[in-house]
Amino acid sequence: MIAKRWMRRWIPGLLTAGVLAGAAGCSTPPAPRAAPGPTAVSVTAGPVPARSAPAAPPATAEPCPSGGVRLVEMEGNAAMGLRVADFQLVNCGDQPYALEGYPQLSLRDDRNEAVPVAVEHGAAGITTGASNLDEAPRPVTLAPGQAASFGMVWRNLVTDSAVPAATARIVEVEPRPGAPRLWLRLAAPVDLGNSGRLGLGPWRPMTR
């Protein structure tokens, strides 16, 4: 009898303890602490791009020579030893420029020494069919900005091995009597061989 009363007292206590223990074991664990946010990273700005240098100003145009005109080498032609070259005279001044007849022309070599050459008016004896060289001269007046041209022809011949071949790389032109002479280094040299002759055409107005 005593044993039954003891069991009745002990079992409820045991159940209560078990329930409490179970409750303690099954309770929801506290929420974990929030993970720390990403550590702030100090971002160092990269090198500041250099400012673009201002564009260089356009090259200043070549000043107009004191005589008010400029000599320009034009495209030439060479075939079977026959050479043809053309030159342009541009009025770069602010006054009209009058021309007549033929330019006065001389040649120089790399050492700036005169190259002996017989300059003849027209192309007679050097070639045929060069109408621009053989036409009659006429007066030409250039307004500012306008241009005139003249041509010349020669043959690159070596007929005497005892005579050195002549090559001119500089041309000097006096556009009209008494005018300042114009000096021009040539892109295409005048290779005369030892022929010693050059045909020269008159001034002609340039047409556009």
Rank of each mutant, 00 (worst) to 15 (best):
L186G: 13
S52K: 05
G18Y: 07
L107A: 04
M152W: 10
R181I: 14
G93I: 09
D160G: 02
D110R: 13
R51Q: 00
S106E: 11
S52E: 06
L186Y: 08
Q104N: 12
A35M: 14
V190G: 05
E62F: 02
P180G: 08
V153E: 02
L157F: 05
A85S: 13
E113L: 14
A168D: 02
M1G: 11
D109M: 01
E174V: 15
A40D: 14
L198P: 10
V69W: 00
A124I: 10
E75V: 15
N91S: 12
V41W: 05
E120H: 09
L15H: 02
G81E: 00
M206I: 02
L200V: 12
P139E: 07
C26P: 13
V163G: 03
A147V: 01
S66C: 10
S42T: 14
W183S: 15
T39H: 10
R5P: 15
V69P: 09
P116A: 06
A78L: 13
G145P: 04
T128N: 04
V158M: 03
P38Y: 06
S66N: 11
A118F: 07
R5C: 08
V173R: 08
L89C: 03
V48H: 06
A31G: 11
V140L: 01
R8T: 13
T141M: 02
V72G: 03
W154V: 03
P54R: 06
C92F: 07
A148G: 02
P30C: 00
A56D: 10
R181Q: 13
P49W: 04
V173K: 07
P30S: 02
T28G: 01
V171S: 06
R111L: 08
L89I: 03
G93C: 13
V84M: 12
A17R: 00
V173E: 08
V153T: 01
R197S: 14
G193F: 02
Y102P: 12
R176P: 13
G201E: 09
R33V: 15
T16A: 00
L182F: 09
A61L: 06
R70T: 12
V163T: 07
A123I: 02
E135A: 13
G93K: 09
L71T: 12
P65C: 08
G178D: 09
N156Q: 12
A21G: 14
V119H: 12
P144C: 09
G81H: 00
M80E: 04
L198M: 05
T16D: 01
A59M: 14
N132R: 15
P189V: 01
L142F: 08
G178C: 08
A55D: 05
A53C: 01
S66F: 07
I2Y: 07
C92P: 11
R9W: 12
V48L: 12
Y97S: 05
A179P: 15
D86N: 12
P202A: 00
P205A: 02
I170P: 08
E174D: 13
V19P: 02
T167G: 00
E100H: 11
A35P: 15
L20A: 05
G46Q: 01
A136I: 14
L89P: 04
A34V: 15
